[in-house]
């Protein structure tokens, strides 16, 4: 419980730091993003004072006390008020993020967890059969796949499976003729659209998990408790899973938390390639249109999601390792 509380405290502190970083970023940059943003917004029509104030609070203007701005900004973050987007004027940033987030969370979240589980299992097998073909094949292809840029894997799959063989839809999350909701045709269509991005993320992130688990488990296989378990004649399944793998999963889990940021970053590029209407694609649109309010809000959401995921991983670690309970 103490471990859980200390992790919770650390999470809160890190989240606060990330929110603050998000506040400071535009203010540390040369030039005035806020002025640029207001000028851009003015192209769509007159900017009302409330909107102007919101943008200034978010992006910073040379006038006004920093502390007061910070206070306003914190209030805005808590009420999820990120102003309006000017790419998709007059839609509010919050509504845009809200509609993109579910796609990314479901796609990236599910696939990442699946990749971790599959990769870990393959890693266990590779370490247990060290030196055999069952080890060499996943290890070698894993280290090669891990070096693939996410967007390139995506482009190749898109080109071959999407365009050349036309097995899967090439862009978007669902076809325009379906009605989003919990109905059969829509879900089937959404799954078909998700296959290529999902396979990309799975393939590219799998290698890292395989290698991580394999190396961790080769370490634990050399530990004395494994030798002793063998000396006691335990079944090899028990030795491999309950002794070697069970301990190797712990450092691997920590690695998972730390590598998560990279996977999420890569997934953003994947969304861009498949024009998948998630957070990454939206971020790409915001960046190309210099839509700073949208960009800021998206960055904050992405960071907070990764932090939450890390917190979950930490909690899981606490459950799996009895040594943290003391």
């Amino acid at each position: 419980m103490r471990y859980f509380l200390s992790r919770l405290g650390l999470f809160a502190l890190t989240a606060w730091a990330a929110i603050t970083l998000n506040f400071l970023l535009p203010r540390l940059m040369p030039g005035s993003p806020a002025d640029a943003a207001i000028a851009r917004l003015a192209q769509n029509g007159p900017v009302d004072p409330a909107t102007r104030a919101a943008i200034e609070a978010q992006l910073g203007v040379p006038t006004g006390g920093l502390l007061a701005q910070y206070w306003d900004y914190l209030g805005n973050v808590l009420t999820l008020d990120f102003g309006v987007s000017y790419t998709f004027f007059p839609a509010s940033v919050a509504s845009l993020v809200g509609s993109a987030l579910p796609f990314t969370l479901v796609l990236v979240g599910l696939v990442t967890v699946a990749a971790f589980v599959i990769g870990t299992l393959i890693g266990v097998l590779a370490a247990w059969r060290r030196g055999s073909a069952l080890d060499a094949l996943p290890t070698l292809s894993g280290s090669f796949l891990a070096a693939f840029p996410y967007f390139w894997t995506a482009l190749l799959l898109l080109f071959f499976l999407g365009y050349t063989f036309q097995l899967f839809p090439t862009s978007g999350a669902y076809s325009p003729y379906t009605t989003p909701g919990l109905n059969g045709p829509f879900l089937a269509d959404a799954v078909a659209h998700a296959v290529l991005p999902a396979v990309t993320i799975l393939l590219t992130s799998l290698g890292g998990w395989i290698l991580g688990m394999r190396n961790a488990m080769i370490g634990t296989l050399g530990d004395d408790y494994v030798t002793f378990a063998e000396a006691n004649g335990l079944r090899s399944r028990t030795v491999a899973l309950r002794y070697a793998a069970r301990n190797a999963i712990l450092p691997n889990l920590t690695g998972f938390g730390l590598a998560l940021g990279g996977v999420v970053g890569g997934s953003l590029l994947v969304e861009r390639v498949f024009a998948y209407p998630g957070v990454g694609y939206l971020l790409f649109n915001a960046v190309t249109n210099q839509d700073f309010p949208l960009m800021q809000a998206l960055f904050l959401m992405i960071t907070l999601s990764v932090l939450v995921a890390n917190f979950v991983v930490d909690t899981l670690y606490g459950i799996l390792d009895p040594r943290t309970r003391r």
Binding site: L21, L260, V264, L269, F292, F299, T303
Partner: peptide
């Protein structure tokens, strides 16, 4: 903090600014 903040989005934001 720098370890858990996703690097690529941060790079994208900074590069955009």
């Amino acid at each position: 903090l720098f370890l858990v903040i996703p690097g690529l989005p941060l790079m994208i934001v900074i590069a955009a600014y």
